[in-house]
Design a protein around this nucleic acid. Structure first.
Lengths: 118, 118
DNA sequence: CGTATCTACAACCATATGGTTGTATGTTAT
DNA sequence: ATAACATACAACCATATGGTTGTAGATACG
């Protein structure tokens, strides 16, 4: 069975957004409180435009939202939906992982019971 | 305060590895059981070499390991450490998120004790 | 009004990514 | 030994990424 490929999966966007340390840091800050883009930019050793782009990536993944406040654009974390999806994916992995552990345990139990395969 | 930047964070590697649907699918399969690279390749509409590269990305993130079995290279999921790190990062986000919710709840409680907008 | 600030966006650059094909190396089976 | 299979790896290509600078549009302030 072939994998999806047609949809630009939202999981793709979320994981990609989280794959950069600067973006993770921005997200953490914006979960803590609201920050204007220029304020955020002041925290990192890169240009305003670069930070702007990072915010855009987070926005596309629906991890943050922006709202105008006067001449500034306030960024805030909006994780409730997104992180849930991410956790759902990870849980999928965990389920697989656990089921394999279970099977290994099963095999171990069988082999240690020696000869007596139920 | 400036973000890390010096370390090629393992979180970077993990999130990046998970940001591609094909790789997530490969990981799921390899958590379920062992597959040779060529067997894996047969599942996806792309060349053997492409799948090989995807496996390499997963390997670099320590999400899978390979072991030789005859002329094949068997790939298996090795998530125990990696996913824990990923979950740790997400928990960080969740903590921030919750603490903000708490503060919002606090504010709501304060304001509703007053005028009382239902 | 004019000016300073914050933002948006385009153009550009170097490097990384995701894909291809081709070739070389190992391992099994005949 | 030879053929067949599984893998590794290099070279190449198009596009995406992460960064830069520069310019133009809004909005606040004196």
């Amino acid at each position: 069975m072939v994998v999806d490929t047609k949809t630009p999966e939202s999981a793709d966007l979320i994981f990609h957004a989280l794959s950069d340390a600067t973006r993770r840091d921005i997200l953490l800050r914006c979960l803590e409180g609201e920050y204007s883009v220029s304020t955020l930019a002041s925290y990192y050793p890169m240009s305003f435009a670069a930070v702007q782009k990072h915010v855009a990536v987070l926005e596309k993944a629906h991890l943050v939202t922006k709202r105008r406040r006067g001449r500034e654009q306030m960024v805030r974390g909006d994780v409730v939906v997104a992180i849930e999806q991410t956790l759902a994916v990870l849980e999928q992995f965990e389920t697989m992982w656990r089921s394999r552990l279970d099977r290994m345990g099963q095999i171990l139990r069988e082999t240690t019971t020696q000869g007596g395969v139920p």
